[in-house]
């Protein structure tokens, strides 16, 4: 069944978000001290929807960098559960929306469900804002994505000038939009405008390389000097992994004091030496070459093996933020070229 698309005048955005906030905890990109990140929108607070790509990925809405798992004291343990309203993410970009599906494969497995992730993620609505102007470092179209991709979204929003076009993608999205105030049914002309924006955005990105053979190429090049080359300048920081929407590794720590404490889980990264350091002191990934290889192999080989798709959405944050300009796109091309020549 074809679903209607809706139109929201830009002047009504504030009121729309306010309405949304009655039912949901609304997270939107907000600029604070120069940093744009997804935070819970407070009444009257302005969102930075125009900002092309938030500094921090929205994964921390469902999977905070530091999260209390439970508390304990001399009388026992007590659970700490998310008791807030269901979450609505407003203004995620299509790459970030797709990242939730990839993360979900890890946190919601047929056998294991991560209760912390599920508590925030279940019943959440994702309103994605299509990218009219993809950035030069974006490469979502290499990875089955695109500036107007709706994968992972409940609603896809397109900026059509003085209004937003809202296209329901999921049933939940449709249910919300069909009963929401302030919306009009969009006209053929509105839809044409969105279509034009989509074509412009997609053609601005250039043709992506074919990645069908990437996994096999990487596997074949496990011992290649390419790894020495790319890792020699790597500083071993976590600017890439902590700004990555699909990196999910965590550490667990106890923080206790005077008979009571909390167990927390916090983002960890394969780029840090202690990540794989064993109790004996042995470290199976002793050098930055081993650690960088792990990051790339995890996204483009191991994740494919386990989940059937790449563990990268091509948001380009690591490309833009790496202090020494390690560009994963260049490395992928290098791998494909080298494997082809073998």
């Amino acid at each position: 069944m074809e679903m209607d698309t809706y139109k929201l005048q830009k002047g009504n955005l504030g009121r729309f978000l306010q309405k949304l906030g009655e039912e949901f905890a609304v997270y939107a990109p907000v600029k604070s001290d120069g940093v744009v990140a997804f935070v819970e929108l407070m009444p009257g607070q302005e969102s930075a929807l125009d900002f092309p790509r938030t500094h921090k990925p929205p994964k921390d809405v469902f999977y905070p960098q530091t999260e209390v798992m439970f508390g304990y004291d001399k009388d026992g343990m007590h659970s700490v559960e998310y008791k807030g309203k269901p979450i609505a993410l407003f203004g995620t970009r299509p790459c970030d929306a797709k990242s939730f599906l990839l993360l979900e494969r890890v946190f919601i497995d047929p056998k294991y469900e991560d209760p912390y992730w599920a508590a925030r993620r279940n019943n959440a609505l994702v309103f994605s804002l299509a990218c009219n102007d993809p950035l030069p470092s974006c490469f979502c179209n290499w990875l089955d994505g695109g500036p107007f991709s709706n994968t992972g979204s409940d609603v896809l929003i397109t900026d059509i000038g003085d209004a937003y076009l809202l296209e329901p993608i999921s049933e939940n999205g449709e249910r919300f939009l069909s009963s929401a105030d302030l919306l009009q049914i969009s006209t053929g002309k509105d839809i044409e405008k969105a279509q034009n924006a989509k074509e412009r955005a997609e053609s601005s990105m250039g043709a992506p390389p074919k990645l069908d053979s990437l996994k096999a190429s990487l596997d074949a090049l496990w011992d290649s000097p390419l790894w020495d080359e790319v890792s020699s300048k790597c500083l071993g920081c976590a600017a890439c992994t902590y700004s990555c929407p699909t990196c999910y590794c965590f550490d667990i720590q106890d923080e206790s004091r005077r008979g009571k404490g909390v167990r927390i889980r916090l983002w960890d990264t394969c780029q840090f030496p202690p990540f794989t350091k064993e109790g004996s002191g042995h470290n199976p990934r002793p050098t930055q070459k081993h650690r960088l290889r792990q990051r790339f192999m995890h996204k483009f080989s191991y994740f494919v093996e386990k989940e059937g798709e790449f563990g990268c959405v091509g948001c380009g944050r690591c490309v833009s933020l790496c202090p020494v300009n390690i560009d994963i796109r260049g490395f992928i091309n290098e791998v494909l070229k080298t494997a082809q020549g073998q």
Partner: peptide, 15 residues
């Protein structure tokens, strides 16, 4: 204000 932005990526230290 400045340090509350820190994500502990240690890029500063490692650079």
């Amino acid at each position: 204000r400045e340090y509350s932005k820190c994500i502990r990526c240690y890029a500063c230290r490692n650079a």
